[in-house]
Design a protein around this nucleic acid. Structure first.
Lengths: 256, 256
DNA sequence: CACCCGTAACTGGTCCGACCAGTGGACTAG
DNA sequence: CTAGTCCACTGGTCGGACCAGTTACGGGTG
């Protein structure tokens, strides 16, 4: 029985669907229902244009869309045709980066976001880590210590390695991706300022000390303390670059 | 002075950059540095092909990529040319949905992410809220109560309104956007299951009770308690849909 | 028989020129 | 000053063409 609301037809606004769009849809549908799987190949452009009964330009526009969405990859000269790629977080990261870069975000918002994400990742890690993974994290601390004597870039790299290890332990790739994106954006905004800091060595030592405390908290399984330490660390590290009136939200994340 | 590591040039692996790709980059860069802003128009395809010194096919492929990324929109016949769109969470959501469909993102990860983000938003809100905003939030609770007697869709809508109010108070649009996207993806994954639940009224009442507790914690300014209540609420609401072995990370977020 | 190598078929990247339906602003008639 | 008409121009699609590069095949070599 049709419900009364469906008795009179509700007309949908007509939207012009362009030819290349329908090609994209067909290929994505085939991918969704499994009749097309990563690793398989698409027919060549000239054959697709025959199958879809459109010109090559139209086929190409569809392929460009699919390619920019990380669905396929075309290589010139490959007789096997375009390749269906396994789904990856790459495009998601691209979109997120665009959002973080263009959407008029304050440095304060970005850093608050990092404090939240990193804190949560640490908290998860302190509960889920194996002994083996704890050793891994401790080793990244050793690498950080060594990098201090090289230069700031090396230290920054070692720091990234630490956070990546944590993210891996936290078993949440979404957390990891968001964190990496935001860290990248924040760094691009203030890396020059940090690199030119006269007391960069002191900053690095301080940062290392904080990281060591965090790992200690992870060892004892005190997730809450580890998360708080992480947020405090980030605040201490970045707060100077945030205008004073915008620091309130950041402080709201550390005094609890 | 060049550092020793830079004495011998480090060659980068050469990657063929296709013409349409460089057009995309130029336009995205212009968008990133502000020389191109949403609402503005791009020159017509024929003029772009003159400016970039490429053929129209190449210009079009670039425009298709930008269009599929939600950056521009072309309408046939529009003498003003393609329109620069404001950044939207649509493409981000599309990518996330794609990942969730193939289990690259598990439901457990998504829900953990929601617990983290929502908890943090509540914590921020409890510190930053004005009395006026507190009243707003209390009013959304009234709306939720009323919606219970309508149906689940109405309740879900009222719930969204509550979370949006909280996000506004937390003054972090990145937090807000990420949360909205993930909420949408989660809902699209399990909304059918929830709608068919026999005890949906009980679920809604329980959810309302939890929300009321959270608002109470916000009123008293107890950010930590409010955040914990929020995470517990989400866990209670969603855990049944998460396979048992994947619940560990979720529990790690609530027992502290 | 196994292996190496040159070649030819075919691929994707790009360009050109063309046609069409539709839009929107300018221009004209009232 | 308004309302209606018209046309320049837009994007969507098509067909054909050329090029550089990859790959698989087959023939020559050990």
């Amino acid at each position: 029985m049709a419900k009364s609301a469906e008795d009179r037809p509700r007309f949908q606004p007509v939207q012009t669907v362009r030819a290349y769009q329908r090609i994209v849809e067909q290929i994505e549908d085939a991918l969704a229902d499994g009749s097309l799987a990563p690793g398989q190949r698409l027919p060549s452009e000239r054959e697709l244009m025959a199958q879809f009964a459109v010109s090559r330009s139209t086929v190409r526009e569809a392929l460009r869309v699919l390619e920019s969405n990380g669905v396929v990859r075309s290589r010139p000269g490959d007789p096997n045709g375009p390749e269906i790629l396994p789904v990856s977080q790459g495009p998601l990261r691209k979109q997120m980066t665009r959002l973080a870069r263009v959407d008029e975000l304050t440095l304060s918002e970005l850093i608050a976001f990092r404090m939240i994400m990193d804190g949560a990742a640490i908290q998860l890690a302190s509960r889920l880590r194996t002994d083996e993974q704890l050793v891994e994290m401790e080793q990244t601390l050793v690498a950080m210590r060594a990098a201090i004597d090289v230069d700031f870039a090396a230290f920054s790299e070692a720091d990234v390695a630490f956070h990546e290890a944590v993210a891996r332990v936290s078993r949440n790739s979404l957390l990891q991706t968001c964190n990496e994106v935001v860290r990248g954006v924040v760094l691009s905004l203030i890396s020059d300022k940090i690199a030119h800091a006269t007391n960069s060595r002191a900053l690095m030592l301080e940062s290392l000390r904080h990281h060591t405390e965090v790992v200690e908290a992870i060892r004892t399984g005190n997730g809450h303390a580890a998360a708080r330490l992480t947020r405090q660390n980030l605040y201490a590290y970045y707060a100077t670059y945030v205008p004073v009136p915008e620091r309130d939200p950041l402080r709201a994340l550390i005094d609890d």
